[in-house]
Nucleic acid binder design. Structure first.
Lengths: 190, 190
DNA sequence: CGTCTATTTGAATGTACTCAAAAGCGGTGG
DNA sequence: CCACCGCTTTTGAGTACATTCAAATAGACG
């Protein structure tokens, strides 16, 4: 559950937990449904309880590039858009029927005001996301396609085989055809 | 100055400013000198007052991959290492004689304890860094070498021509030879 | 079962890399 | 002040990795 995740980083009183719950809404997104379409303002950050979302960018040629998968216990959202109220660059949709908990900007602000400890929680959350993102940049710069695929399987153990290969290819920045040949090599080795 | 940068995001009393100053140390790193060598624990986050640092990763084949340039007004450091006390993956050295302000972990904790508003400052700081890092990942996935170089010139206007091209190539994930040909094309267009 | 989409396979192409050599540039010492 | 040295950048030829396009196979879902 989400409170278990939160309490790994900060300790909350019963009253604070209640308030926290009051600021969030729950929703189910059916497979193929959207949490956010590029161009809208991304009102929510979402925590995935069950299922899997993907956030992606559609380039000028109409190609989709997956920035992140968000299976169970991951947060996702277009942070730049929510924070600054600008149109979202990212789209977010569901690869499976997915249950999420949603946080809007005002809800977060109310929470931060009432329970300042959450500043810490959010800081740690984002810090970890940032560190992970840096690692990914370094991977892109220094690793071969084969190594990156192997790395993906470690990062998202539950997703290999669960999401379409063309999506994994998109996340890794290669064509599905090429990933197909890479897989043969990687799997042969393991 | 750094306090100008800080006060863009949070308001500080004179007393808080004094306390903040007390937690930081200033240092000069001469060209070629190191703020951090991979393998050590990265004790500091650095704010650059003047000059330019680079943080980079050295891969198994001994190739260097630049993660970030930090000219004036940028923060840098190996966050994962500082936070978790693990050996740094990154090295950080000076491309020019560079004046920095240093923050160690305990200093930051004291500051957060005494002036909790800084949670907010650090959160915003990291949030922006995270958003920027996501943008870079998307660039790597979706843009051509030419477009990425053009983007670099926008992101670091002061650095093109100021740092060696081989370093820019390393940051962009291409060979210096190839960047050289890319430049010809990009500059011809502008 | 049949249809639609995803994955695999293969051939041809292009983009970026390696290696090698020439040209440019900056600093240092004679 | 100029000549030389070392390092960076440019140029070019040959190569490798990844892409595109096309077709065949396999899987998923109604």
């Amino acid at each position: 559950m989400i409170l278990a995740t939160v309490s790994k980083h900060i300790r909350l009183t019963a009253e604070e937990q209640t308030f926290w719950r009051g600021q969030m809404r729950q929703r189910t997104i059916t497979k193929g449904g959207f949490l956010l379409s590029a161009g809208e303002v991304g009102l929510y950050q979402a925590f995935v309880l069950k299922g899997c979302l993907r956030s992606y960018y559609t380039d000028a040629q109409g190609k989709e590039h997956i920035l992140q998968f968000a299976p169970e216990d991951w947060w996702t959202g277009d942070m730049a858009s929510q924070l600054r109220g600008t149109p979202a660059v990212l789209s977010i949709d569901a690869l499976e029927d997915t249950d999420v908990i949603l946080f809007d900007g005002p809800g977060r602000e109310r929470l931060l005001e009432r329970v300042p400890k959450f500043e810490r929680y959010f800081r740690i959350l984002i810090q970890n996301a940032f560190i992970a993102q840096q690692r990914r940049t370094l991977s892109n710069l220094s690793k071969t396609a084969e190594e990156r695929y192997a790395e993906f399987r470690k990062l998202y153990p539950s997703l290999d085989g669960r999401v379409a290969q063309k999506h994994i290819a998109s996340y890794l920045g290669m064509t599905p055809e090429f990933l197909s040949t890479v897989r043969k090599r990687v799997i042969a080795k393991s």
